[in-house]
Design a protein around this nucleic acid. Structure first.
Length: 225
DNA sequence: CGACTTTGACCGGCGC
DNA sequence: GCGCCGGTCAAAGTCG
């Protein structure tokens, strides 16, 4: 597999607070205050001590190291990332980001934020509470569907979702005892864009990457900013 | 022959 | 209660 050609040259992570964020139907002020942007210092200080952030950093380090290994410069952009889960400074006590897709209502009303809407599930489950793994998702401009993030994945399903012409693929980490999953699909409005959603935390380092490698770690900052 | 992909069936959550 | 839909399973197929 040609590893590195598969890394996208452009990566627009969700969601770098657009100015009109709070005016979106799905981003009422009481929702938007629940979000916290992730900064290099907050990552470093473990301020955002939750699974999604950790896993995001983990994956970014992996991808960055892959780029570094192949002598490529990072062109990843975006000033801020969004915490998608509960944390000390993100006291969104119950709820989760469920879908990083443009909402039906937004489509119908022809909102064009230039970003995706996030649909939030805020109601409680009946009876016992369902525990969901932390998630984060991002979109990339790429010819290939599956980005090489250093981990090994096994495909376990594919589904055509409603109102999209491209199927969604489901992958699981092949590492034993690691329950991380990811789904990959192409954006209906722009098939050049790939939406990747990670769910869960890896309980191991990428097979072909030593995360203790200080070089890889130091690349994270360059990668992000 | 093992690892991986494909694909139809199945299941559970959710909205009406 | 029913039907729709997304997510998962698992048997069969493919590949190296």
């Amino acid at each position: 597999m040609e590893q590195f050609d598969q890394i996208p040259t452009q990566m627009g992570f969700l969601l770098p607070f657009p100015p009109n964020l709070t005016s979106s139907p799905l981003f009422s002020p009481q929702y938007s205050k629940s979000f916290t942007s992730i900064t290099p210092s907050s990552l470093a200080s473990n301020e955002l001590d939750d699974g999604s952030t950790s896993n995001l950093a983990q994956t970014l380090v992996a991808i960055t190291a892959q780029k570094s290994k192949h002598g490529l410069t990072s062109t990843f952009g975006g000033p801020q990332f969004l915490s998608l889960h509960r944390s000390n400074v993100n006291p969104w006590s119950f709820g989760e980001v469920t879908d990083c897709f443009r909402s039906k209502r937004s489509r119908e009303e022809n909102h064009d934020m230039g970003f995706f809407d996030i649909k939030m599930k805020v109601k409680k489950m009946k009876g016992r509470r369902k525990v969901r793994e932390p998630r984060f998702c991002f979109k990339t401009m790429s010819d290939v569907d599956v980005l090489d993030d250093g981990y090994k994945w096994r495909k376990y399903g594919q589904k055509v979702v409603k109102n999209t012409q491209h199927p969604r693929s489901y992958y699981r980490c092949t590492q034993e005892n690691c329950r991380v999953k990811k789904r990959v699909e192409r954006l209906a409005e722009d098939p050049r864009m790939v939406i990747t959603t990670y769910e869960g935390r890896h309980v191991h380092s990428p097979p072909d990457l030593n995360l203790e490698d200080s070089h890889a770690q130091s690349q994270l900052t360059n990668f992000l900013w």
